[in-house]
Design a protein around this nucleic acid. Sequence first.
DNA 1: GACCAGGCGTCTT
DNA 2: AAGACGCATGGT
Length: 275
Amino acid sequence: MAEMTKNEILLPAGGMDLQTTLFCGQSFSWEATPDDAFIGVAKRHCVKMRQKENAILIAKLDGSPFSAKEEDFWRHYLALDFDYPALLQKFSKNKRLQACVQAGPGIRVLHQPFFDTLLSFIISQNNHIARITGIVNRLKAEFGEPVGGGQYAFPTPQVLAALKPEDLAGLRAGFRAKYLIDAAQKVASGEVDEAELRCLTDEEARKKLTCIYGVGAKVADCVLLFALERNCIAPMDVWMKRAMASVFPKGMPAVAKGYEGIAQQYIFHWARQNL
DNA sequence: GACCAGGCGTCTT
DNA sequence: AAGACGCATGGT
């Protein structure tokens, strides 16, 4: 019996680097601890993760054991159930793709919860990472359920849908407050439904998402890529055209500092078009 | 004090 | 279809 319960799980990392993956701009749900670990919440489970060479050590903050299902959840969240090295191997011929890989060889595209991702990337528009993280943290602390360890889950669509923009003043999200509420209302009403989105084509899903006030092509594509698992098929045309000038300034082959995450997403964009 | 930030909606051409 | 502009806020 005792050998069946695991208070910690150790997942082979397959070359993944936790630090760069969590802080490259695809997720705003993690915080680094002084002892070089990372604390975050997904699916109302609060965990502390740590890199142990080529493996990831994960423990729940409440110390309770992992079920097999939970172990699978985190393996999938971290994209450790995907043969990433094999994918990256395919890019060695293309100079730009190679530069993207070299800029962040340990970056993995995560599989994040749908509503959390939608809220996060609405907040991200015309914004920068430090402030996005602050707004996300305040949103969780003020309207999300506490999950122990001083951590909070993202608010539910139902809770957020009942609020007015002025109720979100404390978040200092500015004009984005009304967008967050419209997103929550459309999800709560079922007008935007995760299961349905997963059945639609990329174009249909994108069109559905952009019905939400404040959700355009960029935010929709981030939700498609980071939450709806269109890993190798995410369209990011609009965004990529704009972002490439930043990723490769003056046509330089090397990826600009701070854009390693976008570069990694460019790989997936390219993979969708060409593989 | 400008200027900017991993957009979007709206109003012009 | 494509371009200009305002938007709220906080970091640099």
